[in-house]
């Protein structure tokens, strides 16, 4: 067999993934923390105040990266849900279900910080604007996936049902993304674009892109941590998990005297 395919099979084995993820996890957390600190420093101290919005625009450095993450995490979750449904790979189920709470956290931050930004700029905490409403629907989709997963006793069956819901929810993603183009309501159009010119000065842009990088790295760190915890619970009857449980409880007993 092709060595890459072979490695993929090996990666799908829970004990192998658990060990590999454990090795990457601390580095990812550290990288996210450092780049996040650099990005926030740039956003709070180096970037100049906006000529229209003054210092209130500094909320962009938490609001926009989290908004991007709310979509990115959903795509990641849906891709894993698809793999889980088609090829029944246990690790994909775990990854999909582990991303849901992180995505919900990012979506929640997006909505709350957006509300805090809307009050001074638009004069209202909330309005049923297309962008705001579709982002709220995104939060409900995440909560639906989490809720469905926990509502069914058999974890593998639960993961499949929740994965199906996650796939249906994909229709909401283009609505969130294009809402500012399709409907001309309160939320401003995007200023940063992957293709073409961004409508923002570079001293304001680099802290934003650094924060975007930091939140992506953080997502993967949190994803690995959550998947590892979930794999221990899923495989609680297996020998490799028993070994870890006994080792940890022995360590704890020694630590407590």
């Amino acid at each position: 067999m092709n060595p890459l395919v072979l490695w993929f099979h090996k990666l799908g084995s829970p004990p192998y993934f658990y060990r590999l993820a454990g090795r990457f996890q601390p580095w990812l957390y550290a990288l996210a923390l450092i780049t996040g600190a650099v990005g926030l420093y740039g956003g709070l101290f180096i970037a100049p105040a906006d000529y229209q919005q003054g210092d209130s625009f500094r909320m962009i450095y938490v609001h926009v990266p989290c908004a991007w993450m709310s979509l990115f995490v959903y795509v990641f979750m849906a891709a894993n849900a698809f793999v889980a449904l088609v090829w029944r790979i246990k690790l994909s189920e775990t990854l999909a279900m582990a991303s849901a709470p992180i995505g919900a956290a990012f979506t929640f931050i997006t909505l709350v910080t957006g509300s805090l930004w809307g009050k001074p700029m638009w004069g209202t905490w909330w309005t049923w604007d297309a962008r705001l409403t579709s982002e709220l629907v995104l939060l409900f989709l995440y909560l639906g996936v989490i809720g469905l997963y926990h509502a069914i006793e058999d974890t593998r069956q639960a993961a499949r049902a929740a994965a199906f819901l996650a796939l249906i929810g994909v229709v909401n993603l283009p609505i969130v993304h294009y809402s500012v183009v399709w409907w001309n309501t309160l939320h401003q159009a995007q200023t940063v674009s992957l293709m073409g010119q961004s409508k923002i000065s570079s001293s304001m842009l680099w802290p934003l892109l650094t924060m975007a990088f930091a939140t992506h790295v953080y997502f993967f760190a949190s994803l690995l941590a959550r998947s590892r915890a979930a794999l221990l619970a899923l495989e609680s009857g297996k020998d490799w998990v028993r070994e870890i449980a006994l080792r940890e409880s022995a360590q704890e007993a020694r630590a407590h005297g």
Partner: peptide, 30 residues
């Protein structure tokens, strides 16, 4: 923050609190 301090710092606080809670959850679960 040019008069927007309450809004800006509240947004940063929400960001920090939610992500710290998210980071602690898997430790506690494990």
């Amino acid at each position: 923050m040019g008069g927007y301090g309450a809004y800006v710092w509240a947004a940063y606080a929400v960001f920090a609190i939610v992500l710290v809670a998210d980071a602690l959850t898997p430790l506690w679960q494990r």
